[in-house]
Structures are given as structure tokens and as C-alpha cells.
Design a binder for these strands. Structure first.
Lengths: 214, 214
DNA sequence: AGAGTGACACGTACGCTGTACGTACGTCAA
DNA sequence: TTGACGTACGTACAGCGTACGTGTCACTCT
């Protein structure tokens, strides 16, 4: 058995979260999973909050970039957005931990740097690039939060939402009429729809900016 | 003193959350705030999770609609999006509770109904309307989550982000160059930027759809 | 009037939580 | 050899959610 270390503790915490959910996690259970006493953890981690921060940071650092420098900038933006969704599929239950903690470490800074570079290369000025990035992050975080909340296991990408709930068509005519679209829910299609909407929107904005300058 | 009731308990819970944060909330403290025993709460609420659901539902139901049927549909979409942000300002600490719980009650259905009606009137078909709505909700939830996380008190709309953190300009040239834009952070401006992006994007999409049909 | 019934406030108790503190044991430096 | 230090661990405490039993009402039905 290798000696206890911060990395091993974080890894055990992630495993536990993925196996039993974010609510089930406790210092005692993490220690039990590692076969050590509870208080031994505190030699490597100051407290539980810091441990959860480390979990979020570790998950975020797994972000895989398959950037293609030759591709059109709109495609590169899509690729980077999908990369975020990718780790949410790898660590579904931990995703809730990631998005619900606010962290400003360098772990989250690398993707930011990449995204800003892509946007600057496309021709946006600094102000626009920052705003656009924040818009995309908001969209991605909101999307992942819904996906995680709706399907804790993430397994079926298509499922019935709110199976037992029936709405009164008189009170909610629109919702009732679209019940079919609400019932079948393809997360990927929904994500791609929003992503496409945003990418095309900033493409239009770039044209405007170029027109105003030239 | 009026008799204990579900409404009074939920109200006390919201007050406590706003005063001391979502982490500080416990059944014992809520009961103490109401001047009753802990177990009395369980005569009106099945458990803590249900109470938090009720909190989320109550906060969400405060959503104020100042819809203007005469306005252009793009403006009506903006108004409805801003209404969400409005309650986040009224109940900043509870907002975290709202967005982190997944609820499918009729409380959250009324705004959905309104939004879908607006989009259908604008000319979108059912499929597009649902996708667009989900995109907007993702963006709004993601935005509010960031605003809540960055400024727990919500008080200063302009503040320095990550005050002590200095980035290495060699590792992160883009981030370093835009440090100024990261440092000053106007939540409202950021939200409006993304909202404008999305509204214009769906306006373009509507034109495409009309062109394809006509 | 008396008996029965249900709703509700409450106290106690159990198993769980995070973590402060003291202790014991290993390795390395002087 | 002696001391210091890092680490593992046990104990202990305050606080948590809530299952369960008890007491006290208001009310209904005989």
C-alpha cells in the first residue's frame, strides 16, 4: 500500500462521489475506503471544504483538449465547449461539486487561456472576447447542471422527464401541447442546439465588428 | 403568535438562508428562530430535503412578470430573462438552493408556459421553442450561479475578482493581457451582453425559418 | 355528559457528521 | 544517544437529521 498522500485522498474522494453521489461523501467514509483512520486525512488536507476544492480542481484538470489549429475558429470554439461536456460525462456526480464551488485557481485558467486565444485570433477585441467567454461558460455550466440534475447516472441520453407529472392543458396550453418534446430529451441534441445558436451569434457579431472597422 | 404552518416554516428558512447563508441552515436553527421545538417542524414538512424544495419553489414563485404584450417579441424575451435575474437579487443566498435542486413542480411551470407562448407567437415551431427555452435557461442559471458564487452578498455590482491572484504572463498571455477586463466585473453588463447575443441569435434563426418556409 | 379521535407540540435518543486535541511511533540530524 | 519532526491514530465534543413515544388540546359522536 503506498503511503497516504493528498493525491490518493482526492482520488478516493472522487471515486466515492462517483460511486455513491456527492451527498454520501464524508471524511470517515473516505478514510475507510483508504483503510486509514479519519484524522490521518488531516495531515494532508486542511479540511473538508479544501478537499472538495481539490476534487473540483482535479476533475477540471482532466479536461482533454483536442484542438485543431487548422480548423475554422467556429469549429474550434465548438470543440472546446464540447470538451467541458466531455468531463461531465467522465465524472457525472463530481460535476455538481465542480460547478457549485467557485474556484479561481490555475487549474481553471488553462481552458480560459485557450478560449481567449481562439477568440482573439478570430478577430474579437479583448472586451468582446471576455464577454463571449463568460456567456459560453454560463451556457455550459447551466447545461451541465441540468443534465446532472435530470440524470444522476447520465447513462441514458434519452429518457422521459417527470414521468408521473401530468399538466392541466387549460392552465398550461403551451406546455401541454409540447408535452411530447418535453418528454423526449436528448441532452446532446439540446446542447448542440444551444452551442450552434451561440457560435452563429458571435459569428454575426464578428461580421458587424469588421464592418464597423473596415 | 400565529400557529405553526408550512408557510411560516418555509419563510423562516428563507430568512435564515438570506441572513446566514445556505450552509448555516439546520432544522434546529429554523425551529429556534420560530420559537418551537425541532420535531414540531416535522408535523408540516416531511424532511429537510422537502423543506429545501419548498424554499426553492417559494423563491421561484416570487418571479415578477412585467410582461408588455404590446412590445416586440425580442423585448419580451429580454424582460422574462431579466425577471429571473431579479429574484436572484431579491434572494441571493437562496438562489444557490434554487439552481442546485432539480424541481419539476408547477411553480417552475408558469414561467415556462409564458416563455413558450412568447416564442410560439414570435413564429417558432414547437421543437425550436423548446430548444431555445432550454438554451436561455441554461444561460440564465449559469450566469446566476456565477454571480452568486462570486459575490455572496450581491451588494457591489462592481468588484475585483481574485484579488490576490497574480497570473504569469508567460504561461497565460491572453489572461494576463486582459487582466483589466477580468478585474472589473459588472455582472449586469455581462448578463446583458449574453442576453443580447442570444436574442439576436434566435432573431436570425427566425428569419431563416421564415425564409425556408416562404 | 362522557368517550373516542385526530392533530399537533414536544423531549428523548440514535447514529451520523467535521474536526480539535493528545498520543504514539517512524525516520533523520546533531 | 538524544532530540526533533512528520505522520498515523484514538478519543472526544458539539452539532446534525429524524424515528419514536407522550402529553395536550379541540372536536365529534353516542
Amino acid at each position: 500500500m503506498p503511503p497516504l498522500s493528498r493525491a490518493r485522498i482526492v482520488s478516493a474522494a472522487i471515486d466515492l462521489i462517483e460511486r455513491e453521489g456527492a451527498d454520501a461523501i464524508s471524511m470517515r467514509r473516505i478514510a475507510a475506503g483508504l483503510g486509514v483512520g479519519v484524522m490521518s486525512l488531516y495531515n494532508h488536507v486542511p479540511n473538508k471544504a479544501a478537499l472538495l476544492d481539490a476534487v473540483a480542481e482535479t476533475v477540471l484538470s482532466q479536461l482533454a483538449f483536442t484542438d485543431d489549429p487548422g480548423a475554422h475558429w467556429t469549429e474550434r470554439v465548438r470543440i472546446q465547449a464540447r470538451a467541458f461536456r466531455q468531463i461531465a460525462h467522465h465524472y457525472p456526480r463530481s460535476t455538481m461539486v465542480v460547478v457549485s464551488r467557485h474556484l479561481q485557481s490555475t487549474a481553471g485558467l488553462l481552458p480560459v487561456e485557450r478560449a481567449l486565444a481562439t477568440l482573439r485570433e478570430a478577430g474579437f477585441d479583448a472586451q468582446d472576447a471576455v464577454h463571449i467567454l463568460r456567456t459560453f461558460i454560463a451556457f455550459i455550466v447551466g447545461s451541465l447542471l441540468r443534465e446532472v440534475g435530470v440524470t444522476p447516472t447520465f447513462a441514458p441520453t434519452l429518457r422521459a422527464e417527470a414521468p408521473g407529472v401530468e399538466v392541466d392543458p387549460l392552465l398550461f396550453p403551451e406546455v401541454g401541447a409540447m408535452a411530447g418534446f418535453f418528454a423526449s430529451y436528448d441532452h446532446e441534441e439540446t446542447f448542440e442546439y444551444g452551442l450552434d445558436l451561440l457560435v452563429k451569434a458571435i459569428a454575426v457579431r464578428l461580421e458587424e465588428r469588421r464592418g464597423a472597422r473596415g
